[in-house]
């Protein structure tokens, strides 16, 4: 799995992850408080300029936002038909600005920085005993570690179907996939505890 982070030396790259996340949050509040299509248009164009200035490459830049653009266009068309052109424009610029700003933050922040921010944000929850902040990083690491294994098991189950001349179906694929994967939980948990990664209780 490749992350969506892109190496670079732009101002956004150098800003701290916390500043970027707070900025993104403030921007989302701002665009919802504004109702002027002109003002929102200026914000959206600015966000687009920032996003394009990150040197992701035209093709990559488009691929990353393609799915979201489609949703936004559909919603804008929906608004155009049901409301007014001004409302459609307003919706289009507002949603585009948010999407582009978010894509820019994603492209300029490493996963490690993000996890540090999440761990820091979870600290109050740890104080009241709801979660262990360090578990978030551990959980994320475990998922990344096991996705390729799940995909491998899926392929093995598919081959087993072919070998027996069976057609794939959701139940006969999902059930063995789930059982085979979850059956390892005890061993993995024992390995984690043996290394005292979560601290001894």
């Amino acid at each position: 799995m490749r992350t969506l982070y892109v190496e670079g030396g732009s101002v956004l790259h150098r800003l701290s992850a916390r500043v970027k996340l707070i900025g993104l949050f403030l921007l989302s509040l701002l665009v919802f408080a504004t109702h002027s299509p002109v003002l929102l248009g200026i914000v959206a164009v600015t966000c687009a300029a920032v996003y394009l200035s990150l040197n992701i490459g035209w093709r990559q830049s488009w691929l990353r936002i393609r799915v979201f653009s489609l949703t936004i266009v559909v919603v804008a068309l929906f608004t155009l038909v049901l409301e007014s052109p001004a409302a459609a424009l307003e919706t289009f610029f507002r949603l585009s600005a948010m999407m582009l700003a978010a894509a820019a933050v994603t492209a300029t922040t490493t996963t490690g920085d993000f996890i540090d921010q999440i761990t820091a944000a979870a600290w109050p929850l740890e104080r009241i005993g709801l979660v262990k902040a360090a578990d978030i990083g551990l959980g994320v690491g475990l998922v990344i570690r096991f996705v390729p294994e799940v995909v491998m098991r899926y392929q093995a189950i598919r081959d087993a179907h072919y070998a027996r001349g069976l057609k794939m179906n959701v139940i006969s694929t999902a059930v063995p996939l789930i059982i085979l994967t979850l059956r390892n939980a005890d061993e993995i948990a024992a390995a984690i505890d043996a290394r005292s990664i979560r601290g001894q209780k």
Binding site: L4, L100, A102, A103, F114, V143, V147
Partner: peptide, 23 residues
């Protein structure tokens, strides 16, 4: 969390904070 930190884990290879800023 994986999606938020910029991994394309959602269907169609979606990921990143844009996922949380969409309609």
């Amino acid at each position: 969390v994986l999606a938020a930190i910029g991994l394309p884990v959602l269907s169609g290879g979606r990921g990143g904070l844009a996922v949380f800023m969409a309609p």
